[in-house]
Design a binder for these strands. Sequence first.
DNA 1: GCAAAAGTGTTTGGATTACACCCATGC
DNA 2: GCATGGGTGTAATCCAAACACTTTTGC
Lengths: 231, 231
Amino acid sequence: MYKIEFEKFFSYSFSLDCVIFGYKDGQINVLLIKRAMEPFLNQWAIPGDLVYPDEDLPVAASRILKDLTKLDNIELHQAQTFGAPKRHPQGRVITSAYLALVKLRELNAIASSWADEVKWIPVHEIGNLAFDHNLIIESTFKVLQQKLSSDPVCFELLPEKFTLNEMQQLYEYAFDLEMDKANFRKKIKSIPLIKLNEKQKNVKHRPAALYSFDSSKFKTMVEEEFYSFKM
Amino acid sequence: MYKIEFEKFFSYSFSLDCVIFGYKDGQINVLLIKRAMEPFLNQWAIPGDLVYPDEDLPVAASRILKDLTKLDNIELHQAQTFGAPKRHPQGRVITSAYLALVKLRELNAIASSWADEVKWIPVHEIGNLAFDHNLIIESTFKVLQQKLSSDPVCFELLPEKFTLNEMQQLYEYAFDLEMDKANFRKKIKSIPLIKLNEKQKNVKHRPAALYSFDSSKFKTMVEEEFYSFKM
DNA sequence: GCAAAAGTGTTTGGATTACACCCATGC
DNA sequence: GCATGGGTGTAATCCAAACACTTTTGC
C-alpha cells in the first residue's frame, strides 16, 4: 500500500544549470547560450539540461556543459537548488546550479546541440533570462564571492600569467570596493606566487611583472604548515 | 517530438532532509528519528520526506519537520543536494538537505507520523544511519561551521540566557580547538550582548553572570554602521 | 621632460597572543 | 581554608590602513 502511494511521487524532473564565470577586461563575465528550443525559444539562458536517469550529478554537470558549449575538463562545484513549483512551464522541474571558474581568454566556447549561440556577458549587464536564471546567477555569484575569500580560486579566473594589478582589480570588481596597491601587495605576500622573468607588453607605461600561481607549493603549505588562504 | 522525449524525464522523485542541530552539555547534537517505514525500517535517519507536487521547497521543509517531530516555527536554510543514482533503493530520489539551529533545551521534539522515536545525539557519536544520511550530516556540519564564523547563529543554539563560558565552549566544540578565556572575551566585546542581573545557580563554584543576545541592536548596527560579525 | 602606472617604505593605531593575577562561591 | 572556575589587566607582537615616495616605460 505504501509502495503504491510512493510511486505517485515519481513524477518530477531534475535538471542542472551551469553558471560559468570568466574574467575579462577587469570584469567578471557569465557564459550564456541562446536557446534553440521551446520553452523560451531564442532567449538567453544559462547552459543547463535534464539529468539522465542513471547519471550522477557531477557527471551530468560536465556532460551538459560539454553538450551545449563544447567546453571540456572543467571543474564544477554545486551551488544552490531551485524548486519553485512554477519555475518551469512544462512541469515540475527542480534544478541545481553548478558553478565553475574558467580562464576565459584561454578557451573557446562553441554553441552546440540545442544552443544557437554562446556569449560572455559581464555579470552586471545581464538582461532578462529564461526561467528563473537571473535568480540563479545572483545566488551563485554570492557563492563565488564566498569562494574568492576563502580559497585561491581567483587563479582559476586569471590567465596563467597575470600582473598583480590584474589580481587586485579582480577582487575590487568582485567585492565592489577599492584597495590600496601597497597594502594589497603586503596582504598577498603569503600566497605562493612565482615571479616570472617576463613583463607585460604593448602598454604605454612601465610594464608590470608577470606572476603565476604556485599550486604545488600551495598544496604542500596546506598539508604541512598551518596555512589557510584568506582574503 | 521534443515534448514526448521530454516527458520521459518526469520519472524522478524529490525529497528534503532536515538536519536540526541543537546544543547540550557542551556538545552539538543532531535530531534523529527512528523510521517506522520501509525502506530502512527501524533504522535511525534524519527527518525527511518527499515534496508534494505543488509545494515550494521552504514550505515543504517546514511541513516535513513538523509532520515527523511536531517542531514548528523553525527557520530552515538550504544546504547541499544529493542525487547519486542508487542512493534510494526504490528509485531515483534526489534530496536537498535543509539546516536548522535550535535551542534544544527550550523545545520538545515528539515522534509523529511515520517516525517511531526521536532522539538527540552528539554529532561525533552518530552511528550508521539510513540512506546516505551520514554523508548528508557531514556535509551540513561544514555549512554549520561556515555559518558560525560569519553570522551570529550561535545564539540560535545557546539558551536565551547563557554564560560567556557556554558560548566559548560552543565554539571550541564546533571547531575542535581551545581558546584563552581572557582573549575570547576581548574578541566578542564588539558583539551586542546584554548583561543580565542574574547569575548561574546550583554550581559549586563562583556563579557566572548570564547574558543574552541583543538582536535588535545587532540589526541596527548592521544597517547603520559598517559592522559585520566575524569569529 | 612628462604622463602614467609600477613598485616600495614608513608610521600609526587597533587587534591578537600569552600569561599572570585576583575574586566569589560551596564545602 | 582550599578547590574550582569566574573574571580582568598588561606587555609584546602582529596586522591593516593611510600615505608618501621612487622607478621605469612610451611618446
